[in-house]
Amino acid sequence: MKSAGGKRRSRRKVAFVAHCLVNQNAKVAEFARLPGVVSPVIDLLKSSGYVIEQLPCPELLFNGATRWWTTKDIYDNPGYRRHCRSLAKFSADVIERYQRDGYEVILIGLDGSPSSGVRFTGTSEPIWGGRPDARIDEYKIVPGRGIWIDELAKELDERGIPFPKASGVPMDSPDFDMDRSVAELASFLSD
C-alpha cells in the first residue's frame, strides 16, 4: 500500500485473540499457566505490528469464575450455542469493521479448549457428566473447533464475511510448551 506521498506503507493488521491470552483469570481452575497476560504471545503479536482485540470468554460469561472442568461434548447443547452466538454477533460486528477498513485480520484461539479451540478442542474418555469426578488424564485433545469458535464462524459465514486466517496456542494441551508454541506462532505469522 502506498500513501499519498508515495511512501510504501505496510497493510494494517489486527489479531483477534482468545480472551484468556490477555486475562488468565478467566481460565477454569488449574488451567491458567501464567498470572495475568500470556506475554510471550501478546508481545510477539504487538512486536509484529498487530492491533490486539480481545474476544469475549464464553465460558466465564456463561458458567462463571468457579465453574467445573467441562468438555466440548458437554458444551455442545442449544443453550450454550445460543449464548456463544449472541457473543458472536457483536464480535462479528467488530471483525467486519476492521475488514471493511482494509485491515488484515487474523484470529488466535486457544487450542485444546472446548470453546476457543481453533485447530484442536477437548473431549473426554469416558465422557464426563453428572457427579463431578474428573481426572486430567481423561481430558482428550482432538482435532476440531471449540463451540465458541464454531458459532463465530457460522455468524461470519451468514454475513458473507470470510473466516480470518486462524491458529491457536495449545495452552489446554497437557504437553504444552511455551517456547515451542511461540515459535510455531511466529512461523504462522510469517506465512
Binding site: 490477555v22 486475562n23 483469570n25 478467566a26 498470572p35 497476560v37 480481545q54 460486528d93 467488530v94 469493521r97
Partner: peptide, 28 residues
C-alpha cells in the same frame, strides 16, 4: 506495567467501535 505486575487485562472497545456492537460488549 500491568503485564509485569501480573494482572490480567480486560480491554475496553476502541473509540471507533461500531455502535451496534457496543451494547453487547459493555454488557459483557
Amino acid at each position: 506495567c500491568v503485564r509485569d505486575s501480573g494482572y490480567g487485562i480486560i480491554k475496553m472497545p476502541p473509540l471507533a467501535m461500531p455502535k451496534v456492537a457496543l451494547t453487547g460488549w459493555i454488557s459483557s
